[in-house]
């Protein structure tokens, strides 16, 4: 299935326009990164349902909350470093906290781009490596990390239909297509993208592709890997993880995020409750990133031991 490269943001922008045509409650709001996020076109088509508040992220998410409070389905976003980075309190208190009857939190979808070190050249100050940790600890908040553009499109649609606050992190670079357009996405359900029985590799975002490549390397060694796309970080698919743990006996987690309190930690939290097995968390080892041009991206990932080869080595080591 994996082949051509596509741009997550382009697909996101197009999907919003498609959704916006039939759903007039959808409002889009940005903060001076609307061209980059490919949402400015929405504003050209739906002039009165698009706002650009300038470089003011606290204001961005709080206005989004107010719009949602009045019944709008609000897609707000910029770069991951700024949302949640610049406005955790506003996200917590203005979006996630307000609850009426069965409506938990306000109907705001925080969709950001430029998560992780794959941001590249902009450097460490702009490489968001803490957002999963921050966002998943906020009650009522759901956290999604799509692996490819197909996921982006489907998850955007799901967010528009499902009430409540969401955070979705996209990657800056173009991504390989993992899923077929017919793939069904369900909130809180992982997708097995490679069936296997010797080990489990649970991944999210662009590391799903790395995990698949690692599985291919390991296949040559005769090791069969179960690779799961865990795009839904919260709610987390506890069942698929437990089943996989029972089947394979250990789990490797991959994320473009600090290994502290991120996706791997979330897996540890559930597995320790259900079927404890050894877990190895692969990600950024409690450090910041640094600049790297696109042509140097493999160097950056190698430095952080976050490549298919690194993943495969981890599997080999644990099996030894």
């Amino acid at each position: 299935m994996e082949s051509n490269l596509t741009d997550m943001r382009t697909v996101y922008g197009k999907t919003l326009i498609e959704l916006g045509k039939s759903n007039h409650r959808i409002v889009v709001i940005g903060a001076d990164t609307t061209n980059s996020l490919k949402i400015s076109q929405f504003g050209k088509i739906f002039k009165n349902r698009f706002f650009n508040v300038g470089i003011a992220e606290a204001n961005l998410v709080s206005i989004a909350a107010g719009l949602a409070n009045a019944g709008k389905i609000v897609f707000a976003g910029t770069y991951a470093i700024f949302v949640p980075g610049r406005c955790v309190d506003q996200i917590r208190n203005a979006i996630a906290y307000p609850s009426r009857c069965n409506q938990k939190g306000l109907n705001v979808k925080l969709v950001v781009s430029h998560g992780g070190i794959s941001v590249g050249a902009d450097g460490g100050s702009h490489q968001q490596l803490e957002d999963i940790a921050i966002m998943r600890t906020i009650p009522n908040m759901k956290v999604l990390i799509p692996a490819d553009s197909v996921s982006v499109s489907e998850l955007t649609r799901i967010m528009s239909e499902k009430y409540g606050p969401f955070y979705m992190r996209m990657a800056r670079p173009k991504t390989h297509t993992i899923h077929h357009t017919s793939q069904k996405f369900l909130l809180g359900k992982g997708i097995i993208v490679n069936d296997g029985s010797d080990c489990t590799i649970a991944a999210c975002g662009i590391t799903v592709k790395m995990a698949l490549d690692a599985a291919r390397l390991l296949k040559k060694d005769g090791i069969s890997c179960q690779v799961i796309d865990m795009f839904s970080i919260k709610p987390l698919d506890n069942d698929i993880l437990e089943k996989s743990a029972r089947k394979t006996g250990f789990i490797i987690t991959c994320e473009e995020h600090n290994v502290i309190a991120g996706f791997g930690s979330a897996v540890c939290e559930t597995i320790s409750n259900t079927y404890p097995v050894p877990i190895k968390r692969i990600g950024i080892n409690d450090s910041f990133g640094e600049s790297a041009r696109d042509s140097e991206m493999t160097l950056l990932f190698k430095k952080h031991k976050l490549t298919p080869e690194d993943i495969a080595n981890n599997v080999r080591e644990i099996r030894r």
């Binding site: 409002v27 009165n48 349902r49 706002f51 606290a58 204001n59 709080s62 206005i63 989004a64 909350a65 107010g66 719009l67 949602a68 409070n69 009045a70 019944g71 709008k72 609000v74 309190d89 506003q90 208190n93 203005a94």
Partner: peptide
Amino acid sequence: GIGLSFSIGDALAARID
């Protein structure tokens, strides 16, 4: 510091509607 932004959101929604 949040309520004014929030109010603007609410006011913009009223304008849309």
